[in-house]
Write a protein that binds this DNA or RNA. Structure first.
Lengths: 232, 232
DNA sequence: TAGTTATATATTCTATAGAATGTATGGCGA
DNA sequence: TCGCCATACATTCTATAGAATATATAACTA
């Protein structure tokens, strides 16, 4: 189980290795949202000096996973519901653009890749692992790889970059706070999108994608996520 | 003349100061596209050590202004026409989303700010500075501040961030390669958008914005930018 | 006692030196 | 003459120590 979707192929510098390690820890929640990050302490834990750790922080800051206050401290970005809603809305919008541009150019090989990702998602559900962190992460990775593969077909370098940019941040929220998206209904939507793309019905594929996006965005809806708001 | 639109308010660290200095140099072309950047040489020029220079490179890489090849070299990102077309398309799409979301919430104060930016653009044209680098940069800044102000009204933190993210890269291309957008016709489109927003006609404002965006994207059209392609 | 200033402490930020890596030059062999 | 290997060089990358900055604690004054 890894987060290779946004991981560097083979980290050639210690900095990249630290980035990968910390990203994994943050996305899985091993480093909890809001946790303070001290350079020297982390360096000691990882068995290297503070320099590459410090540089890794800059990368993670660009990905939205770490917040830095100059001369004060660094911390894992807390999960803010309003900010997450904004994030998911923009991400969904960019994904949708990627679908519109990418679907017409999906090759048979890419279609097989899409099928593979859906099967990966399906294995999690059929195995009943949808309530375990490992299974949930696997399903999220499959879903993200699915969307990314469609977008890649658009052959727009900037569109691919901007969608990959905050993918880890999206994954963290869904993994740690988005309980209800990874389930049979979510699987069916992926299957429906795949089926529509396979027969070339892009309109229907988009419709199913919109349903999926709406479900995702709803995760950051205060009304749904804070049901006890009227309790006191 | 500065690039304050993407500049840190008051650089509290040397790293931030270097980022601002290098960003300015890259956007204005003082550091030419493709130029190699050596840490120690730049540090010596700026009168400080290599460490903050090196960290600044990471930030500029995230902004797309610098390309880094591990253990080899760093360079100012070359201007690639295909990549720029992708960039402008995505940027235009995000701006458009910002217009749709932001326009309904523009306050009178923000409207005055928009008017101020259009006047700034107008002063460049009426002063005949549209062919000089300084004037061109001023007009680009006014235009970008205009779009950004509309988007800010949408109050979507992620949308604002993602549009500001690569603003310097967009500005550089238009400044160094986008000869024809800064002119009376460009000014008129800004004025038309402003007028439409002022009277609350968002449909028409969007139509004018689309014209503006199309003109911008056309700058990266190979056919238009390489007219001598049939000459030999 | 409340507020302010000075001091101590912790952490980041920067400078510097050395280690690691990649490229180019020159020599060797076929 | 061409290809391959070793060596020298340049540059990045990392480690370490010291400087700068912010916070907390304690002493002092009104």
């Amino acid at each position: 189980m890894s987060l290779s979707l946004v991981r560097s192929q083979a980290p050639v510098t210690r900095r990249d290795a630290v980035v990968d390690a910390l990203r994994d820890a943050i996305v899985t929640g091993a480093l909890e949202p809001g946790a303070f990050l001290r350079e020297t302490a982390l360096a000691a834990q990882l068995g290297l000096s503070a320099t590459p750790v410090r540089e890794a922080m800059g990368v993670l800051q660009a990905e939205g996973l770490v917040e830095i206050e100059a001369h004060r401290h660094k911390r894992v970005t807390p999960i803010d519901l309003a900010a997450t809603r904004d994030l998911l809305e923009v991400q969904a919008h960019l994904w949708r653009l990627g679908y519109v541009r990418g679907m017409p150019h999906v090759t048979p090989a890419q279609l097989r890749a899409l099928r593979g990702e859906v099967e990966r998602y399906a294995r999690v559900i059929s195995g009943g692992e949808e309530s375990q962190p490992a299974g949930r992460l696997e399903a999220i990775r499959a879903s993200h790889a699915f969307h990314t593969a469609v977008i890649a077909a658009a052959a727009n370098s900037e569109l691919l970059r901007v969608t990959l940019d905050r993918l880890a941040l999206v994954a963290r929220f869904i993994l740690l706070r988005g309980g209800s998206t990874i389930n049979p209904a979510g699987l069916r939507l992926h299957q429906a999108i795949l089926a529509a793309i396979t027969i070339g019905d892009q309109e229907q594929a988009l419709a199913h994608f919109d349903s999926l996006a709406a479900r995702m965005i709803a995760l950051a809806d205060p009304a749904a996520s804070a049901p006890h708001i009227t309790g006191d």
